[in-house]
């Protein structure tokens, strides 16, 4: 399904924002300003961005550990993301996180992420159940890697979600690897989407490098969910350009394979789409400039907050601590 030019421009902007943010986070790590584990999402940005373009602010996102595009696209503020990475009290988790995996913003339906892989299946099903019980029309969406789909929770949640026609979308980012283990050495099926059949759930397979393709599939799934017709499983085929984590020796794949992944960069594709729709390079350059300035401003805001200190470690255990 086509996106409007404005939607495509917004997707381009968020992709630029995500890429710049990750580059900066890597620089923080290299400089020793942040000593955290980053699972780069380079190469996979079109999936989260395309999906969020089809969602409302109040739809609920349970995101994966892979990169920052998913949460930036849903509305997490860049200064809160960076602040958290730098352990600042202005960060999304008040400086506890110093990473990207636990940023939330209830205002934008950014609900959080389970560090234990597979936790997101049952939670996103539960969120959809909650919305259904409350009688509102929010949908929940979960982004996950194909490796995580081998947890038993996938099957428990898929069965119940289909049975109860829960308003949810499962969006698999199939980048072919679970750390070092190739997809086909962890399961017999080529397509994770095949599993939907077992639960009588609609499914789709899309090119995960193509933001419009993802948008189209998710939009259709959202309409189905909102109208009470239940869950959809979407599999986006994608490529991870960097290692599983920074410092990954990547001895399990060839240099050629990594080079080929770089050619499938979703950023190249979105630029081509915009050019084909008559958007000039000058407009893209203007957005790039704006995003560079946005990043610098976000870093400055993040740094303007104090570092989290010992008092922080007991904050937020119970509701009484909520500010």
């Amino acid at each position: 399904m086509e996106m409007t030019v404005d939607q495509l421009l917004h997707a381009f902007r968020i992709m630029e924002r995500s890429i710049l943010a990750e580059q900066r986070l890597l620089r923080f790590i290299e400089a020793g300003d942040s000593r955290v584990l980053l699972h780069s999402g380079r190469g996979q940005e079109a999936i989260g961005i395309g999906a969020c373009a089809a969602l409302r602010d109040d739809d609920m996102l349970f995101y994966s550990h892979r990169g920052v595009a998913q949460i930036l696209a849903k509305g997490i503020l860049l200064d809160e993301l960076i602040g958290d990475f730098l352990g600042r009290i202005g960060g999304a988790t008040g400086g506890l996180g110093a990473g990207i995996v636990h940023a939330v913003d209830p205002k934008f339906g950014v609900m959080g992420s389970s560090g234990t892989l597979g936790g997101g299946f049952v939670l996103s099903a539960g969120a959809a159940l909650g919305a259904a019980k409350l009688g509102d029309d929010r949908v929940s969406i979960h982004l996950f890697g194909e490796g995580s789909a081998n947890r038993g929770t996938f099957h428990e949640a898929a069965n119940a979600a289909a049975l109860w026609k829960l308003p949810m979308i499962w969006l698999c980012e199939n980048n072919g690897y679970s750390v070092s283990v190739p997809h086909r050495e962890a399961t017999c099926i080529e397509d994770v989407a095949q599993r939907a059949q077992a639960y009588d759930m609609p499914s789709a397979i899309v090119d995960g490098q193509d933001v419009e393709a993802v948008y189209g599939a998710v939009k259709e799934a959202v309409e189905r969910a909102r109208s009470g017709c239940g869950p959809t499983l979407i599999e986006a085929k994608t490529f991870r350009i960097r290692g599983h984590y920074e410092g990954d020796p990547q001895n399990y794949r060839s240099k050629d394979e990594i080079a080929a992944a770089k050619l499938k960069d979703p950023q190249i594709l979105v630029q081509e789409r915009l050019a084909a729709r008559g958007v000039g390079e000058d407009r893209l350059e203007a957005i790039r400039q704006e995003e560079r300035a946005h990043l610098e401003a976000a870093v400055a805001t993040a740094m303007s907050h104090a570092k989290a200190g010992e008092a922080q470690i007991y904050q937020g255990l119970l509701a009484g601590d909520m500010s």
């Binding site: 000593r35 506890l96 110093a98 636990h102 989290a308 200190g309 470690i313 007991y314």
Partner: peptide, 16 residues
């Protein structure tokens, strides 16, 4: 260890 969870922030981890 402290009676709380272990934050990801290394600077806080050392307080635990």
């Amino acid at each position: 260890g402290a009676d709380t969870y272990v934050p990801q922030n290394l600077e806080l981890e050392r307080f635990i």
